[in-house]
Design a protein around this nucleic acid. Sequence first.
DNA 1: CCGTATCCTCCTCGATACTG
DNA 2: CAGTATCGAGGAGGATACGG
Lengths: 132, 132
Amino acid sequence: MATATAAQRRRKAREEYDAFIAACPSRQLLDRLADKWVSLILVALADGEQRYSEIARTIAGVSQKMLTQTLRNLERDGILIRSITPAVPVRVSYRLTPLGESLLPVVRAVKYWAEEHMPEVQVARRRYDARH
Amino acid sequence: MATATAAQRRRKAREEYDAFIAACPSRQLLDRLADKWVSLILVALADGEQRYSEIARTIAGVSQKMLTQTLRNLERDGILIRSITPAVPVRVSYRLTPLGESLLPVVRAVKYWAEEHMPEVQVARRRYDARH
DNA sequence: CCGTATCCTCCTCGATACTG
DNA sequence: CAGTATCGAGGAGGATACGG
């Protein structure tokens, strides 16, 4: 059964890779995911292929440099695919790979959590600041 | 019904807070969560209260400065509680708040994803590097 | 044991200017 | 449109030393 095998492979991977260990490659991957822009890009691509300029418009405040850089990193990691349509002007689109699709719910949960619990955090901050 | 009310509050919060908008407070919260150490600290506290030195030992490679700084931020955000037992030497413990408990599964999922999918990412990187 | 304070370095990130 | 190249400021974050 292919699915079970894949699940077993992932379990095995988690035994071998421990992000608590500084030198572990998965720690570097965790650092990569712990990025300002990664979750926003992933969520922006949730509904399918998007052009470079569309992503830029969705994610307010991202600089051209950071957007390009983060997209390249995610492409290198196999999380998204960059495709070029030769035309004038050229058209570049990005879409999630299956690997990226598997990451999407995870990072989307982080974005949602931040949006949902912001009020509680703001209350906690005011309480803390009042006492310190 | 208290639970339903809380759920409604969160839904409302998600309508009002949109992390795609740079100025939105939830975007700052997302940036806070997008931190090298946050998920590791949260997961380290998953099984309950831990002393400062225990956390430091669990998370290999974290400097005293960053650990203290991140713990302070998380305390201010109401995600964990710091408690001091006056003794000689002093004993300082950290544990998750209910808010922190609600965040735990989310960030743990990120850590797990990184550990599980590291092999695929490494393959993707080798493929990418071979072609560029 | 659990910090705080200081210094110093690197590297992230934004701004700007330029190309196919 | 979708980049690349370069520069420069600022902050992240480590090392070290010291304090309650």
